Simulated scan of single mutants.
Amino acid sequence: MPWREPQIVHGAGRLRELPNHLKAHNIDKVLLVTDTILEQTEHFQNIKKYLDEANIGYAIYNGTIPNPTIDNIKDATRIYKKNKCKGLVAFGGGSAIDCAKGVGIRIARPWTPISFMRGTLRVLRKIPYLVAIPTTAGTGSEATVAAVISNPQTHEKYPINDFVLIPRLAILDANITLDLPPHLTATTGMDALTHAIEAYIGYSNFNGSAEAAIIAGRLIIENIQNAYTNGHNIKARENLQKASYLAGFAFTRAYVGYVHAIAHSLGGMYHTPHGLANAVILPHVLKYYGEAAEKRLGFFAKAIGAVPAEIDNHEASTLFIAQIRELNRSMNIPEFLDVIQSEDIPTLAKSASKEANPLYPVPKILNAKELEELYRIVKGNH
């Protein structure tokens, strides 16, 4: 497979290097993709200043919403074309980066509806030069082949996977994440932990993805509470950024599992933020897997230093799930998602099954009845 990694610029204060990389690729005008809140931040204003100083033109799309929609992509693409942009710069969390990837898809395949791209290897054409500047440490979208898109009309949320969607450049500047609110620090960090765990316990990991998942898991366990309680701990912020990237590297090669499939269905139906959904769902799914996942999960827990190395995998996995629950509680993440409506569960389960099977190499295939039971557990009705 034609895997590649984005060029990485990692370190506090390195956002100012953006113009040099654009010039190196002969890009003299870009579309900045963000949202209305991030547009007002000092860091976004700095991006505009750096581009102005380098005589690089830009247009702005600030309409990105959580779980970006087909309409977001359509509106942003219109601005890109109208201003004759030559590249894309995404400034935000996974939503802004996914929206920019969606614009890239529309530019590469202008005559194909975005919904026809769902699934794997449907784009297959080079998209414009894409820079990802993540403002959170969690989604890993700066490292992945995936763009996750929502369709409000059908209440669906689905991934588009293609190698061309891996950004060309990722700027990991920890200064950008210093003012991230504690709740977002917690949920995006748990999102990254979910990526690492699901990549590791599935059946498609290889040495490279397994090693990346373990390093990411260790960094998250060691730093997430420090970043949550002291947002200006620059070292903790840098470590979480590194973890997010490594977890993204791992899952874009080894895939995820039912945690993500369920989270995507809730994002499509109820607009539940993805990091929050993953954080809540994760311990429930891991427990539901039972013996099917405990060998790999136990080994992972020991490898990242979350549990004693001398205990067996059954005990290690049980203890690790309990630690995840406690970690959530310590950061005020709820145990259940009561937004789930009982009458929606069959539709949600069908959506999750369609996404996960047969693409995701999960430890255990769940049938419709089991998936519906799992939704009731996540709702708190079991």
Rank of each mutant, 00 (worst) to 15 (best):
260 H>Q: 13
359 L>P: 01
135 T>W: 10
212 A>E: 11
149 I>H: 01
343 E>P: 08
376 R>L: 14
258 Y>Q: 04
223 N>H: 07
181 P>V: 12
40 Q>M: 03
346 P>C: 11
277 A>V: 14
246 L>P: 12
266 L>D: 08
339 V>S: 02
340 I>T: 04
52 D>V: 00
210 A>T: 11
224 I>W: 05
116 F>W: 09
267 G>E: 08
114 I>S: 10
245 Y>T: 04
326 E>V: 01
120 T>C: 00
91 F>S: 09
88 L>V: 02
146 A>Y: 15
329 R>C: 02
165 L>E: 11
55 N>Q: 15
187 T>W: 07
325 R>A: 01
41 T>C: 08
220 I>L: 04
376 R>P: 00
242 K>T: 12
345 I>L: 07
119 G>Y: 03
29 K>H: 12
173 D>C: 02
303 A>Y: 00
34 T>A: 02
210 A>L: 03
240 L>D: 10
151 N>G: 12
337 L>H: 07
255 Y>N: 15
37 I>G: 02
330 S>Y: 00
93 G>C: 03
259 V>L: 10
324 I>M: 13
53 E>D: 13
318 T>S: 12
357 N>C: 08
146 A>W: 09
102 G>L: 05
337 L>E: 10
20 N>S: 04
35 D>W: 07
41 T>S: 14
155 H>G: 02
123 V>Y: 05
179 D>E: 12
290 G>W: 03
134 P>M: 05
236 A>E: 10
158 Y>H: 01
125 R>A: 08
188 T>L: 03
91 F>N: 00
152 P>R: 02
274 H>E: 03
96 A>S: 15
315 E>F: 02
78 R>C: 07
285 V>P: 03
334 P>H: 07
260 H>N: 12
122 R>F: 01
98 D>H: 04
186 A>F: 07
334 P>I: 10
176 I>N: 08
79 I>L: 10
247 A>W: 07
228 Y>Q: 12
132 A>T: 09
362 V>N: 07
242 K>H: 05
338 D>N: 15
86 K>T: 12
172 L>W: 01
81 K>L: 13
217 G>H: 03
210 A>F: 00
149 I>P: 05
350 K>R: 07
13 G>S: 08
271 H>A: 14
119 G>V: 05
150 S>K: 06
156 E>V: 06
268 G>N: 04
16 R>A: 05
147 A>S: 09
